[in-house]
Amino acid sequence: MCTFAQVFAAQPAGIVQQENVPNMIAEVGKSVVNVQTDRSFRSRRWRPPDFFEQYFTDFFERKDSEPRTIECQGEGTGVIIDAGGLVLTNTHVISDAETIRIVLNDKTVLPASVIGKNEKEDLALLKIEGERTFSAIRFGDSNSVKPADDVYAIGTPYGYSQTVTKGIVSAVHREFKRGGKVIYDDVIQTDASINPGNSGGPLLNSNGEMIGMIYLGDWRGEGIGFAIPVKKIENMITELKSSQKAYERQANFKRRFGFAPVEEKGKDGEKQLVIAHVLSQSIADKSGLKIGDVLVKFQDQYVRGLEHLIEEALKVTPGKRVYLEISRQKRTFFTYIEVRS
Rank of each mutant, 00 (worst) to 15 (best):
M1A: 13
T3F: 09
F8N: 13
A10R: 05
I15D: 01
N20M: 12
V21W: 00
N23E: 15
A26F: 05
V28T: 05
V33Q: 01
V35I: 13
Q36M: 13
S40V: 09
S40E: 08
F41K: 10
S43K: 15
R44K: 11
R44Y: 15
R45H: 11
R47T: 14
P48R: 09
D50R: 14
D50I: 12
D50S: 15
D50Q: 13
E53P: 05
E53Q: 12
Q54W: 05
Q54R: 08
E61V: 12
S65Q: 10
E66Y: 11
R68D: 11
E71M: 04
Q73D: 10
G76K: 10
G76C: 06
T77V: 06
I80M: 09
G84N: 04
V87A: 09
L88H: 10
T91D: 05
I94M: 10
A97D: 03
E98M: 05
L110G: 03
E121L: 10
I128T: 06
G130S: 06
G140V: 03
G140I: 02
N143V: 00
S144P: 02
P147Q: 04
G155Y: 01
G155V: 03
G155W: 03
T156F: 03
Q162S: 13
Q162M: 14
T165F: 05
T165P: 06
I168C: 08
S170I: 08
H173T: 04
R174Y: 01
K181T: 13
D186F: 00
V187R: 01
T190N: 08
I194F: 10
N198A: 04
L203D: 02
N205S: 10
G208C: 01
G208P: 01
G208D: 05
E209D: 05
E209N: 09
M210D: 02
G212D: 01
L216N: 14
D218Q: 10
D218W: 04
W219Y: 13
R220V: 09
G221P: 08
E222V: 09
G223D: 11
G225W: 01
F226V: 04
A227W: 07
A227M: 07
I228T: 09
P229S: 07
K231A: 15
I233L: 11
I237Q: 03
L240I: 08
A246N: 13
E248P: 00
A251T: 12
R256I: 14
A260Q: 09
V262P: 00
E263Y: 03
E263F: 05
E264P: 00
K265V: 11
K267T: 15
K271I: 02
V274E: 06
V274Q: 04
I275Q: 08
A276E: 04
Q281N: 14
S287H: 02
S287P: 07
G292E: 04
D293L: 07
D293T: 07
F298Q: 01
F298D: 01
Y302C: 02
E307Q: 13
I310R: 02
E311D: 12
L314I: 00
L314K: 01
L314Q: 09
V316S: 06
E325P: 00
I326M: 03
Q329W: 15
Q329T: 14
T332S: 11
F334C: 06
E338F: 03
E338S: 08
R340G: 09
R340W: 05
